[in-house]
Design a protein around this nucleic acid. Structure first.
Length: 294
DNA sequence: CTATGAACCTGACAGC
DNA sequence: TGCTGTCAGGTTCATA
């Protein structure tokens, strides 16, 4: 569930809850939650214990905490992951996966994850403190070094639909199913519009729309449809009230009044306005004639 | 290298 | 009361 705004809310909460504190004990309650830490759960624990943590970082939907050792502990929330700060004597959550206790008497950090698509791992970092395993990720639209020209060039080189491109974390990171649909609605584009023939002005419009809608969502504490997305204090956001299309099948478009439609998309859903976002005549291209030059 | 779809999990809910 | 099928905010891996 969590996309960039929700992960950023968690990053901020994480930082105020644990930055500067010393890790004392770590317990892994489910091996799957540390599966991306190749050396295993015991090694994961060993690398954390005794470390003081620094200021939390984020790229796209990933976040991390630097350790005094120079390594970083990285996390991804997947579809249902939560990082919560609670008093050490609070009862264990149903889906408690990893528990991090500190040397002081303050709250402990818990990774709770119903579906276990998320996870934690300890990684090496580059000179800028970015985990090495995240370098394949594109920067996100809030990164001062995000290169819009390069984004447009790379998108137009693709032979796919614009929604697929928005969700490709190697082109731009942080955008998921909700904010992709919201951005496409704001830009007046249907998600199956072929990227190869996308005008530069449209590519930039949808990118800026994604950045804008995610900034607004961040201001509302994120989008919570249910209890699966919460901040470190266990509270949800309220941006779902401001969504224009996502989850609004049959309800009137806020711009023109036409009923919002839901269409299947990659085993999931896309929501759009049939009037404001007209379908392309020829859908996403995928058969490209290959010409061999000998 | 690029594009696509299945797999990875658990739980809520609708319909029978 | 069950059972079955569908759906959920994401990423990775195998296959063309």
């Amino acid at each position: 569930m969590p996309e960039l705004p929700e992960v950023e809310v968690v990053r901020r909460g994480l930082q105020s809850a644990v930055a500067g504190r010393m890790i004392d004990r770590v317990s892994v309650h489910h091996p799957r939650s540390v599966r991306r830490h190749a050396p295993g759960a015991d090694d994961f624990t060993r690398r954390l214990v005794g470390q003081r943590v620094g200021l939390a970082g984020r790229r796209g939907k990933y976040l991390w905490l630097p350790l005094a050792s120079g390594e970083v502990v990285t996390g991804h929330l997947g579809m249902s992951g939560q990082l919560v700060a609670v008093t050490p004597d609070a009862p264990a959550e149903r889906h408690l996966r990893v528990r991090v206790r500190f040397a002081d008497a303050g709250p402990e950090l818990r990774f709770v994850d119903q579906r276990t698509f998320g996870g934690l791992s300890v990684e090496d970092a580059d000179d800028a403190g970015v985990p090495l395993t995240l370098r394949h990720l594109a920067r996100d639209p809030f990164d001062p070094d995000f290169d819009e020209g390069e984004f447009v060039r790379r998108v137009r080189r693709r032979r796919t639909g614009v929604k697929r491109a928005l969700l490709d974390q190697t082109l731009v990171s942080g955008i998921g199913n909700i904010y992709a649909d919201e951005a496409l609605w704001r830009a007046g584009l249907h998600g199956t519009r072929p990227t190869a023939r996308l005008r530069m002005i449209d590519a930039l419009a949808v990118l800026h729309a994604a950045r804008d809608v995610m900034a607004e969502a961040l201001g509302s504490g994120g989008t919570s449809f249910d209890a699966l997305y919460v901040d470190v204090n266990g509270r949800g956001g309220y941006f779902e009230r401001s969504l224009a299309v996502y989850g609004r099948r049959g309800l009137p478009c806020l711009r023109c009044g036409a009923p919002i439609v839901r269409e299947p998309f990659m085993n999931r859903s896309s929501f759009s306005c049939p009037h404001c976002q007209r379908r392309p005549r020829s859908p996403a291209v995928r058969t490209l004639k290959t010409v061999t030059i000998s």
